[in-house]
Structure formats: C-alpha cells, structure tokens
Write a protein that binds this DNA or RNA. Sequence first.
DNA 1: TTCTCTTGCCTAAGAGGGCTAGGCTACTAC
DNA 2: GTAGTAGCCTAGCCCTCTTAGGCAAGAGAA
Lengths: 189, 189
Amino acid sequence: MARAGVTVERLTLAAAELADQVGVENVTVAALARQFGVKDASLYFHLKNAQELRVRIALLALAELADRVAAALAGRAGKDALVAFANAYRDYAREHPGRYAAMQIDLDPETAAASAGVRHAEMTRAILRGYRLSEPDQTDAVRMMHSTFHGFVSLEKTGGFRHTPRPTDDSWSRTLDALDAVLTNWPSR
Amino acid sequence: MARAGVTVERLTLAAAELADQVGVENVTVAALARQFGVKDASLYFHLKNAQELRVRIALLALAELADRVAAALAGRAGKDALVAFANAYRDYAREHPGRYAAMQIDLDPETAAASAGVRHAEMTRAILRGYRLSEPDQTDAVRMMHSTFHGFVSLEKTGGFRHTPRPTDDSWSRTLDALDAVLTNWPSR
DNA sequence: TTCTCTTGCCTAAGAGGGCTAGGCTACTAC
DNA sequence: GTAGTAGCCTAGCCCTCTTAGGCAAGAGAA
C-alpha cells in the first residue's frame, strides 16, 4: 500500500482552496480525506479536530495577506501607500473569499499573537507615519482604517451594496479619498 | 397527546435567542426541537429546511435593528443623528451577537428587497440629509458609513482590537468624530 | 352528536459529518 | 535484520438534516 503523503501543510493548502471554492463552513474533514484518497479518520493523525483546520486556513490567509500588503507598500508613502494597502487588502479578499472569511474567526490570544496578524498591524501603523499622528490618535485611526476596509469588503461580498446601481469600485475609491482626507486632517479634540 | 403549539414565529424567536447564546452556526433544528419538546422531524412541518431558520433570524434582526435605529433617530439631525444611529447599531450588535451575525448571511435578492434592510438604508440616507450631499457622493458616503460601522463592530467582536490597550469605546467615539468631519467636508473630485 | 378533513405531531430510516479506539503495515534508524 | 514509530485502516458511536408515511386532535359541517 503506497502512502498518501498527507502533511499538515498540504492539508492546510487544500483546505484553503476548498474554502475559496465552497466557503469555509463547507470545509469538512471528510471532503479533504476524499480529496487525498484517504479515510476521514486518518486525518485525525495530522489534525486535532475540524476546528484546527479552520484555524490553519486563517493563519495561512493572514500570512499571505501580510506578504501581499508588504509588497504593495514597498517604496510608497502617504496616500499612495494607503491606496496600495487598501487595494491589496480588497483584492485578496475577492480572490480568496474563503480564506478571507476564515480570517474572521476568533483566534485564541496566543495563536493570534503568534500569527501574521501582528505583521499586518505593524504595517498599518507604518502607513500612518505619513500622516504624522501621535498616540492615541494613531490607534484610533488604525482602527477606523481597518474597520472601513473590512466593512466595505465584507458588505460588498454579502451583497450589502447591491440595491444601489452605483459601481462599488467608484464608491471604493471615493471612500479611500475620504479616508485620506480625514487622516490628513484628523479632528483634534 | 397535548400539542406543543409550535409556530414559525415562536421558532424564529427561540432560534434568535439561541443564536445570541451559542452563535448562529450552532442554531440547529435538533436543538430547537428539544427546546420545544418535539422531535426534529416535526419542525419540517413549519420550516422548509435549516437554512430557512437562519434567514428568519436575519429578517427578525433586520426588523429589530431598523426599529431601534428609527427610535434613536427621532428628533435628531446632523452629528447628533449620526452618533445616535451609530450607537444604536453597535449596541444592538453587542446585545445580540447571534442575531447580528445572522444579518450578514447572503439573502437572495427578493427576500432582501422585502426585508427591513430597505428601511435601514432609507434611514441611513436620512442622516446624510444633514450633510447636504448630492449623488453620487451620497451613495459613496452611505457605503463608507455603513462599512465603518459594520467593520468596527465586527472587528471588535472577533477580537481584532485586542492587541492594543486603548479602550475601544474611545476609538469608537473618535471614529465617529472623524466620520462626521469627513461627511461635513466631503472631498470633491 | 357524529363524521370528516386538516393540522400537528409521531416513528422509521438514510445520508453525511465528527471523532475515538484499536489494529495492521511500511518505512526509519540502529 | 530487527525494533520502533509514523501513517494509514476498519469499526463504531453520536449528532444533524431531511424525507416518507402514519396517526390522532381538534375544527367545522351535517
């Protein structure tokens, strides 16, 4: 009997691709086992449980996204950097809806701290250097920025913007303009 | 044999409460049946399938949220209205995490059009009357506003802000300040 | 009251998925 | 070559979703 050669890495990658195709909620241990030509029970040698699969997809996605963002930010500053970051973020979410959805699951604190989410947060702060904000304004601005990106992408995906004919791409770029404007002129108390 | 007195309304309400307690993904036909002292199969007399349950939770939540927002907006205008809307939205999401999560599922177009989401959208536009924006700026602004609210609430819930000590309430109110500022001075092309 | 029809529940049963326990086998290291 | 372990298997349990078919309670008509 030849071995199937299952590894956690291969499982995670296959799970991520499955997630993009059918949604995270449909990423099942059984489906993966079929894909690898192996029985479901066998996968529990590599995984603690089905939840671990989703967590691993999330961590993979966080790392991939961080890489993309890093590449997009290289050599840019100010609004240029903002737009590049935003587009990298949105593009990733659209290309990988399942991976993106997995990112939203609640990671336990230690896992989150060890994840690429940290790199992500650092880069977000890096963008704001161009806008010369000091604490705590910087934290507030980071949170607003992240909220705007995530909210937009998320609503766009679930069809929240469907009832108005205006192209979402247009609204997106105007939202980035607005974000740039408010960061440039952050309201002081 | 006394009848259990199951109705779609009672089912939906129980499902919504269950969702708030254990999450939408754990709202199961079987669990509801247990709660009503009835066999699972019996519920299919009232429901088409398990998905319908989640849709009904979503519709209930949309209606409840629309009511809350309407109440919050009464007699307010400008930034006052913006803040009232935002807080009503966030409070609802925090009090009813399961219902809120259910709201994010993808409703098919006709269902969505018949839902209270429409009322919601109208009220959002009503806020913007105070800021005197004309189309298409108004649509862009509505989308940005909604994105910010949803994004913030969503990230707050999944722990996305946990790595920074700053109280999220503070970031929230500063975000609203910023939103007010950018709406007041919407960047023209 | 009695008959009838509909409504609301039931049992039975199959298809999946999650997961554990225990066993066999192929490779690895000595 | 042998011991040990890593990688897979079968069997089996529980849970959920869903369909099919049956029976009884209650409402309305005769």
